[in-house]
Nucleic acid binder design. Structure first.
Lengths: 172, 172
DNA sequence: ACGGTTGGTTCGCTGAACGAACTCTTCTGT
DNA sequence: ACAGAAGAGTTCGTTCAGCGAACCAACCGT
């Protein structure tokens, strides 16, 4: 390919979007960030991504303004979604919904709930009870009937992420 | 990687979804199919995808039940979205919307309209005028202010796709 | 009969992903 | 204060998917 992530010069916004988040691992990193993962080693553990690839992707996403590096406890850096990155939530939700519908034989794996009113968040992003558009920070992830409990060998990040929790809330 | 499109064994539906449509080119093929592209040569022309890769992707998507091969005029085969494939429309819409928002300096490139009532289709997939969920086949793509008119050297498929038309309607 | 179009296949090349090992810094426990 | 562990990457050799140009076979209009 001419340049790594370049597609053709199409006048299409989806092409632009895919040039940012269309590479292997990238959307999974964004999803994990939405779910509260913030540390390098937690991404490595949870995703099984090669460390060099993770380094490159984080750098790239920071450069594109999807993530930003923030100082964590100690001098450790953590990675946090920007507003632009949080704007990818509908993409993550739509993909998860499609996967749930076609590849979850024993029912949905995750159900998202509006924290304020406890209504379920529909695929469109609105609350089925109150009808409002549910912002990311007011969305609670709850395990659905199809979610197999995480095995110990999948590491503790998996276990933490499988517990009901508010999105964007750091797992640690 | 262990297997080509395998990620780790995560109990996550988005991972499953990405194993199907997460590879380079795959979502662009789906988008083109939504926009009415049906022929091998049209995909090649419009996407600039290597023919061998297109062959492999089409085969894979058929195997996964996202596309199906239908006989076209002559003995030519064409590729058509299945119901499962049409279910990816929210993903395409969400990605396009994000791209439009962040990478379209002179305004949105494409605006989707509800054919029946002429209301605009929001990012959530509902019609802003009548409030209904707009099915794919009743959605009309119209060029937005940010759409640069396709150049002749981009081929005639680009030109056809830039004209207002109903989604899923074959371009030829 | 035959030149063009369509729908692929073949093939050598290159670059990205892989994973295991290594480095450097910062905590933590004693 | 010091040893060891953990965190956050870097380095490196291998492998494999994507690339593009060329090739091929069937069909189509004339």
């Amino acid at each position: 390919m001419a340049l790594p992530r370049e597609y053709t010069n199409q006048a299409c916004s989806m092409v632009r979007a895919l040039e940012i988040v269309g590479e292997r691992w990238t959307l999974l990193i964004v999803r994990d960030a939405v779910f509260g993962v913030r540390r390098f080693s937690d991404f490595v553990e949870h995703l099984g991504i090669p460390r060099a690839v993770l380094t490159e992707r984080l750098e790239f996403l920071i450069g594109e303004g999807v993530l930003e590096r923030v100082p964590g406890p100690g001098k450790r850096s953590e990675y946090e979604l920007t507003a632009k990155g949080r704007g990818l939530w509908p993409v993550v939700r739509a993909l998860s919904a499609w996967g749930d519908e076609h590849y979850a034989p024993s029912g949905r794996r995750r159900v998202f709930v509006h924290a304020d009113c406890e209504g379920e968040v529909a695929e469109s992003g609105t609350c089925l009870r109150c009808g409002d558009e549910v912002p990311l920070a007011e969305t609670v992830m709850t395990p659905g009937p199809g979610l197999t409990p995480p095995l110990p060998e999948n590491g503790q990040v998996s276990a933490l992420l499988a517990r009901p929790h508010r999105l964007l809330q750091p797992v640690h």
